[in-house]
């Protein structure tokens, strides 16, 4: 019962326990620790190269010099967070959005195919799920394939899809969107099948006593019951859709998109560029998932399912 003793001490309660209570405090502290580890890592990993550079130039150096220089390399093994932020600021705010070097431009390229693929995949997934729930032959023949399609690393063949579609003249947005569609439909189908089947026997029996037809049962019972499942799937789907779009950009010859930025950065050893593209992608993913979350809360609250 040492914890209780700690809480009994008023000094502890005001300082430590306030920081460790709830979620925001611990998350902030853990983030801070990660940031510090990152800086330490950056110094440690980049030190060797920096020391070599010092020796080549024949300058004498001390620890402060080393720290300062390791955090300001042009092509560090591990860039420091502030370097990434500066690069992001330059490529996002200080540049015209039409510029080939603007991250806004690249993000938009990726985002547009993400959203297109997401919309198509969601639509396809919902239609498939409704079919699977209502048609026995589809349930038995299609469902196992939908599941096993997930075990096939489709993302790995994404570049081939892009190249092959490019060979027949489909370029730019559509091939990437097709990859995203393929990735999206799976979680949506699975979630919706689960959701459409979620009403218990009692509720289905109730519809039966009203002599409701299949369409009425779908509209009044199965669909609303499936919505929470749908949104859980959509969060997965939009994240994976973004991944699909990024990987789909890898083989396009590094022209546009966050994936192309990654590839170009890796070709030329521009680590800061890689990291800034990566952080942008991460921010984009978080924003998209959060957006779906907002839509979910709005809709579920309107349906009265949330307090």
């Amino acid at each position: 019962m040492t914890i209780d003793a700690g809480f009994a001490d008023p000094a502890h309660r005001t300082l430590v326990s306030r920081l460790t209570a709830g979620k925001a405090g611990p998350v902030a502290i853990v983030s801070l620790v990660i940031l510090m580890l990152w800086y330490a890592g950056a110094i440690g990993m980049n030190a060797r190269m920096q020391i070599d550079a010092f020796q080549r130039q024949g300058v004498s150096w001390g620890l402060p010099d080393l720290v300062r220089e390791t955090l300001a390399q042009e092509r560090p093994l591990l860039p420091a967070p502030h370097q990434i932020l500066i690069e992001m600021k330059q490529t996002i705010f200080d540049m015209r959005v039409t510029s080939k070097r603007s991250l806004v431009f690249h993000s938009w390229v990726t985002l547009s195919s993400t959203l297109l693929g997401f919309a198509a995949g969601t639509g396809l997934g919902i239609v498939l799920a409704i079919g699977i729930v209502h048609v026995r032959s589809l349930d038995k023949s299609l469902m196992p394939w939908v599941i096993s399609s997930q075990t096939i690393p489709i993302l790995a063949i994404a570049p081939m899809v892009v190249v092959v579609l490019g060979a027949i003249g489909l370029k730019g947005l559509v091939p990437k969107a097709i990859i995203s569609t393929y990735l999206c439909f799976f979680p949506v189908t699975i979630g919706m099948v689960k959701g459409l089947r979620s009403p218990d026997l009692l509720q289905l029996d109730l519809m039966r006593t009203y002599n409701a037809n299949k369409f009425q049962t779908l509209r009044l019972l199965r669909w609303p019951a499936a919505l929470p499942f749908l949104f859980a799937s959509l969060k997965v789907a939009i994240a994976i859709s973004l991944v699909g779009a990024i990987v789909g950009e890898l083989p396009t010859g590094a022209q546009a998109g966050l994936g192309a930025r990654l590839l170009a950065g890796s070709y030329y050893g521009q680590t800061i560029q890689i990291w800034s593209a990566l952080v942008t992608a991460a921010l984009l993913a978080s924003a998209l998932v959060a957006l779906v979350g907002v839509a979910e809360r709005y809709l579920l609250r309107r349906m009265g399912a949330l307090p």
């Binding site: 009692l202 509720q203 109730l206 006593t209 009044l220 019972l221 019951a225 349906m303 009265g304």
Partner: peptide
């Protein structure tokens, strides 16, 4: 007929 089940079976979204 009207049927009343063991559980209320009210739809939570209505």
């Amino acid at each position: 007929y009207g049927y009343v089940f063991q559980a209320p079976a009210l739809y939570p979204w209505r």
